[in-house]
Design a protein around this nucleic acid. Sequence first.
DNA 1: CAGTTGATTGAACAACTATTCAACTATCAG
DNA 2: CTGATAGTTGAATAGTTGTTCAATCAACTG
Lengths: 121, 121
Amino acid sequence: MKNEQQIQPECGCETVHEEIVSQVQGKLLSKETYIDLATLFKLFGDATRIQLLHALEQHEMCVCDLAALLGVTKSAISHQLKSLRIARLVKYRRDGQNVFYSLADDHVQKILDLGYEHLSE
Amino acid sequence: MKNEQQIQPECGCETVHEEIVSQVQGKLLSKETYIDLATLFKLFGDATRIQLLHALEQHEMCVCDLAALLGVTKSAISHQLKSLRIARLVKYRRDGQNVFYSLADDHVQKILDLGYEHLSE
DNA sequence: CAGTTGATTGAACAACTATTCAACTATCAG
DNA sequence: CTGATAGTTGAATAGTTGTTCAATCAACTG
């Protein structure tokens, strides 16, 4: 899905490198795609959620376990899990009164690994 | 770097699965590491910055080019680039009055690709 | 059924963030 | 030097976000 935006001459610049800019513009994605990507990565932009995801990378756990592990309330955990669920980053199964959460696929682990790799350089 | 946090009994839960929780706790990283990871991924959590990074993935460009391409002011671009520079996600070279920015390494592209892959499922 | 515990939800508030505006620095041309 | 253009910076503001609190739902027990 390509982008239909036009180059904005209102930037106040005189020497825009037009060839490169229009060449790059042809390769950009739609604004919605960037918003979707940002919405996804926003979920990785909070230390509590990162820790939550890293914990679930080790083992599935219920809300209570996660609250105890991270030292925050069940409510806070539940709110965060809801966001992660909507983004299909975690999945859950109910077992009696407990709801066990786990990672939905291996993208989370790959993304976390890349981030850690970047920090380690 | 391992985590020295203790399990918080104040979560108000009765049925914490202690074996799993303490096993997972031993594999968690330090709080600072999660904060650093969150700080890094926060930079991917904004549509303008994502678009900026994706544009720079195609070709190095000056602030003017990027402002024209994204339709925002040079000031906004410069502020964003500063954050990305601090996180070592972009680098720059000065050529006369122009400052050309480009991606610092291939982590950005890999992370964006993983995000796009996740969205596409 | 009532009582208990796990989990979710919505509202409210504090903390944070992205953009704009204005002022400033840097580089080049004459 | 002066003037012009590219880029940066700080303050202010509007918008967003994470947590808490209280209320509610869901599942089990007796």
